[in-house]
Write a protein that binds this DNA or RNA. Sequence first.
DNA 1: CGCAATTTAATTGCGCACAACTCAATGGTG
DNA 2: CACCATTGAGTTGTGCGCAATTAAATTGCG
Lengths: 157, 157
Amino acid sequence: MTTLPGMADEELLRLDQQICFSLNAASRAFGGVYRVLLRDLGLTYPQYLVMLVLWEDGDLPVKRIGERLRLDSGTLSPLLKRLEVAGLVRRERSPEDERSVTVGLTSEGSVLRERAGQVPRRLLAATGLPVEDLAALRELLERVTGALDSAVVEPAP
Amino acid sequence: MTTLPGMADEELLRLDQQICFSLNAASRAFGGVYRVLLRDLGLTYPQYLVMLVLWEDGDLPVKRIGERLRLDSGTLSPLLKRLEVAGLVRRERSPEDERSVTVGLTSEGSVLRERAGQVPRRLLAATGLPVEDLAALRELLERVTGALDSAVVEPAP
DNA sequence: CGCAATTTAATTGCGCACAACTCAATGGTG
DNA sequence: CACCATTGAGTTGTGCGCAATTAAATTGCG
């Protein structure tokens, strides 16, 4: 393994630039394709992520959705409100804990699952990568995320 | 190579979920570490990307910056205005083409480069991956981005 | 030359991400 | 039991990303 301390700042700067550029670019490229695929479902990409969680797990409190997607209430509250206005989702305070709000699918929200069925296949096809490479990509991303999350980064340079 | 048509929808849905979840998570995890590292430089992550381009290439019209970072004027105009207010950047209309605005570093903006010198090393260290894996990640991301960009995705499912 | 099409920034509007904060409900401790 | 810390949602404010539009300068073509 090539160790970081052995490399020149110049070289690291270039790799850093390439990594952050390419991650940013990839993230936005995915977003662009999803936007097109999801347009006539009336969903944005983050809304699609929430729907995926609900389709898989059924009713969930806002807290759980946030844990699954690493999103806080500042992001989820307005997003869920929009899904509710769109008629896809129901929100009601939990009777046993009045702080918690349970989010559930309306029948319209459940039906939408069928229309979304072809999205994954079409998206994966658009990546142009064989499934093996996609799996490798996912694995690298997960390792990076895990390391970044657990890394204690000192604020002051 | 495993072909997409040979796989079950169920399986694809899972891979799709994993890919988009993990890309999203990785992107935000990077953002979080950058946020901490850049905090006392007074830069956000997108602002840092713009500064990297300017540090490397010197004065550039807004158009060129946008091409490098895949950003349009809707994003860049307010961002550059904030960098200008922060005293890091100068903006002036090009004399030979009055439509174009040239962005250049102030002396303060140039000096900031030194203070940012340790950011790449510290970020790459935080990823916890050897340089080879980071290079592999970059390569996969670039291939995906290229494919997604050139993929013609039909709006209607 | 004159006018239409194109190019370049900027602006507006909407949605997401995140920090900081508020508020109410809950739970634990003395 | 009373008090206080904690928890869960929501709100506010800032900045980014993108679509759509506007305005001005430039280019090109008849």
